[in-house]
């Protein structure tokens, strides 16, 4: 068993946009544009960023629901889909995913018990053992099997459906759970219940989480480390307390200042960032954030910044020329930036 459960190397996915009378590719969406990261066994890695930055594409690539153009996914030391590596089928048994839309991820014509038992049956578990497993899992996710096992998805509330989805994802006893906006559609009172449930399940089954959300408060709460994406790239990654308290990349800073205040006496006074995120079809050259960055200089349009460690203990990295003394940017001390 390795310490690193998942490693992503130079992962890339462009979506072709077809058009014209010949239906040829007229442009490409650079959804995930060469990203690297590792996930340690037992940790929760949060992924944040604004809509369209490539979070869901990353998740779907990890699950191999879509094929990557380039790069490699290494699960527990084995390259996925490579000879001498691990097959997609084997990997999916050990890594499962929960989606935001609790409704469309369950078969509407199956009672929830059968939905949960489906995976184990496909993987060769006999029917009665799979059904028993399904009922046990319903208990684990806080739903009484006497009341819920025969129900259909439409007979459940959003929170209950999401609990069923979590049970379904756990049925194959995975080691890694990818949660893509899994609590985002829930009301706050229900979201809190599901977050508590996820923390309990993680401890009980020694799970590793990849927790994707646009909600920075929730990611801060649940994650050990956090990865910040902007237009298909990783701009910052590190320990959650370091990234939230000492964000190094100007985008991370803006994102954190944009979180609404929870204190009426300390409201946000200035807009942290102007404009909308640009289009991933023709992203800016060099640093993709430069068109919205208050510290942008000529070098930012010419050279693409790479992720470099910003602390000696290597717990935080950011991709910004201001973090690299040799970059040619006039500011070099990230810590000295005006707030």
């Amino acid at each position: 068993m390795s310490e690193t459960i998942l490693e992503v190397q130079k992962l890339k996915k462009y979506f072709p946009i077809k058009g014209g009378i010949l239906n040829q590719t007229t442009a490409e969406v650079q959804a995930v544009d060469v990203i690297d990261f590792v996930v340690a066994r037992g940790e929760t890695l949060g992924i944040v960023g604004e809509s369209g930055c490539g979070k869901s594409t990353t998740a779907r690539l990890l699950m191999q629901l879509i094929k990557h153009d380039d790069g490699e996914i290494i699960f527990d030391g084995y390259a996925v889909g490579k000879s001498g590596g691990i097959t997609t089928r084997e990997m999916r048994k050990r890594m499962q995913m929960v989606f935001q839309d609790s409704y469309s991820s369950l078969n509407p014509r199956l009672p929830v018990e059968s939905s949960i038992a489906f995976g184990p049956i496909v993987h060769g578990v006999n029917k009665s053992a799979a059904q028993k497993k399904a009922r046990d899992l319903l208990i684990k996710v806080g739903l009484n099997p006497e009341l819920f096992s025969r129900r259909y998805p439409h007979e459940l509330s959003g929170g209950q459906r999401q609990r069923v989805n979590i049970a379904r994802a756990l049925a194959l006893e995975p080691e890694v759970l990818i949660l893509d906006e899994a609590v985002s559609a829930l009301d706050k009172s229900v979201e809190a219940q599901v977050l508590n449930l996820l923390m309990d399940l993680k401890a009980e089954f020694k799970l590793t989480f990849i927790f994707i959300s646009h909600d920075l408060n929730v990611v801060h709460y649940i994650s050990d480390r956090v990865l910040v994406m902007y237009l298909g790239r990783v701009v910052e990654i590190g320990d959650v307390s370091a990234v939230y308290n000492y964000p190094k990349h100007p985008y991370t800073r803006a994102l954190i200042s944009a979180m609404p205040s929870m204190d009426p006496k300390k409201r946000t006074e200035a807009v942290p960032l102007v404009g909308d995120p640009p289009n991933p079809i023709s992203p800016p050259s060099g640093c993709r954030f430069r068109t919205r960055c208050p510290f942008s200089e000529d070098i930012c349009a010419i050279k693409e910044p790479i992720l470099i460690h910003t602390d000696l203990k290597k717990r935080q990295s950011s991709a910004c020329h201001m973090g690299d003394p040799d970059s040619g940017h006039s500011r070099t001390n990230l810590n000295g930036l005006p707030k």
Partner: peptide, 22 residues
């Protein structure tokens, strides 16, 4: 509702939730 809402002080604590459904 306020105690269910995750904020910067929630980390490391179990969330105090409202039971039941809407």
């Amino acid at each position: 509702l306020l105690s269910s809402t995750v904020n910067s002080e929630s980390k490391g604590k179990r969330l105090e939730v409202i039971g039941g459904s809407p």
